[in-house]
Design a protein around this nucleic acid. Sequence first.
DNA 1: GCAAGGTC
Length: 669
Amino acid sequence: MVQILCVAEKPSIAKAVANHLAGQVTTTSARGIAWIKNYEFNFNFNAWGHSSVCFTSVAGHVYEKDFESRFRDWQGCSPQALFDAPIVTTVANNDKKAIVRNIEEKARSASILYIWTDCDREGEHIGTEIREIAMKTNRRIQVVRARFSNIERAHIINAAHHPFALDERQAAAVQARMELDLRLGAAFTRLQTLNLKPIIKHLLTEEKSVISYGSCQFPALGFVVDRYFRVKNFIPEPFWGLRLSHTKDDIKVKFNWSRNHLFDRMVTTILFERCLTARTATVTSVQTKATSKWKPLPLTTVELQKMGSKYLRMDSHRVMTIAEQLYTKGWISYPRTETDQFDPAMDLRTLVTRQTQDPNWGLFAQNLINGGFNQPRSGRNNDKAHPPIHPVNYVVGTSLTEEERRVYEFVVRRFLACCSEDAKGSQTTIHLLFGSEIFSATGLIVLARNYLVVYPYDRWESSQVLPPFIHGETLVPTELRMEEGQTTPPGFLTEPELISLMDANGIGTDATMAEHIAKIKKRNYVMTQPRGRNGGGGRGGTGNADAPAREGQGGTGVQEFIPTTLGVALIEGYDKLEFEKSLSKPFLRKEFELQMRAICEGRSTKNDVVHQELEQYQEVFVKTSQQMGVLKAVRLFPFTTFRSCIRNSAMDSCVSDHLIEYRYRTREC
DNA sequence: GCAAGGTC
């Protein structure tokens, strides 16, 4: 019988796939590491016939890269030496060593290595690591990989019968990423820390803290600082608008002006007077049409994190920690996914059925099973590695911690909403012609709440009922006023907004975005506060004069990010150095993303990309070292955070002025 | 003492 060694990226996949393939499984723990299991069974592969299989796993990357020991000592070399210091590959810890030993042993007797890592770039690279380990004890082992995007039985069995080759290019792209992140992260972190720490000790929270640079944490910080200055430098602009209301059948109907508002008082006044002169208005249209509010898309990691900070009173990092616990315990599916479409072959009804026993949403689930089920909408993303986040098994809320319960409830409700029907309503729009101006009023009647019943995170309410109007009817409006308002500044960046920005700019992956955010907090680059404190924002955009401030629906306390003195100084400092591409902006990372894609598509090679990128960054590094004085302007800041600067605008401008001035002359604040 | 990426 052919001996086949299968290796997955994570223990849960090994378990799930083995169970699909096997009739009977023998499970043992790998030597020296209890949580890595070896599943042994027989399977009849198309390619190799009846085979004896050992299915095991790694747990993410096995190897880590670091500099040769003499370059690990901060005093032992200049930070710039890290641009070409030799890099060694090591197995990080004892657990990983046990994982390596396990694969070495199992590979010895196998003739085929079948790799079951995730089908993404990192997964491809982990595949090459596994190959390397196996070939240490068995040079002639034949290596293939499985291509799969979910762990449905039929899909997995099909993948088992159709092996592919590892994608060397994707693995090479990851190698490039690793080398660049290591060299640049270490070099700039040491440069900043060694030069700046002595003069800004008072701004650091801990003695041993560092002033780190990372290709993800800096752009993330950049977004926070950028928004901070947009709020701070905002200049309100006055505008004028017309507000019309008419009372009919004892119902006061407010009409909106089709021009919304104008920034010219004179013009608004003229239009206002034209309306007054006209005296009567004519109903030009009354339209009633069916409308609907779409049910949400299947749940991705990014969306889970955003919703977590909006509705679950947890920051993104906390949400992920909790989601991982729920995943490990087997209640929800893998929580790190970019996919917002369910595979049509997936059996969703069974998953819905498992929720029918819940006292809160069980009835809703039962109704779906009794005929209300609708296939979920499909979004645009598919990472080909994982399905959208969904509940796998039912667990009663009382056996979870309070935080676990909230996240589980959200995942379940979201899933049930996806399998439900859009909410249906009827919307009536009335247009009035008054003088030369058009006004409109709309009324909404929600007819069927459908998915909203199980998904309280969305709001869609019937508006006030409109009195009947008839096309062509004339009327003398009860009231017409000209009102003045002004534009309002955006709010400080909230966590959902920050996550959206990182997502849109390719900063970090779904699995790491929350970590980068946590890191810039830990480094004391940013701090958070509940929205609404300290003025200056929270209204968003150029609102209407009397538009109510839309505080985070129901006051769930979304957090907003404010940069600290240190955070502002770093970003401002680099901006003042006037590189073509500032380290704080996402361009460099985005460009690097394109380079990685070029490697994957064979248009470029790992070595070319690494050399080219290192050269570019080294230029920035040298200029930064030469002009360290600009960054050292941090010294001019008083011992304070920028939050107090908001209250004291005089000091605030003093700080900014000095940063600009510092390049030309030295002055005390 | 540095990064970002996997995962437990």
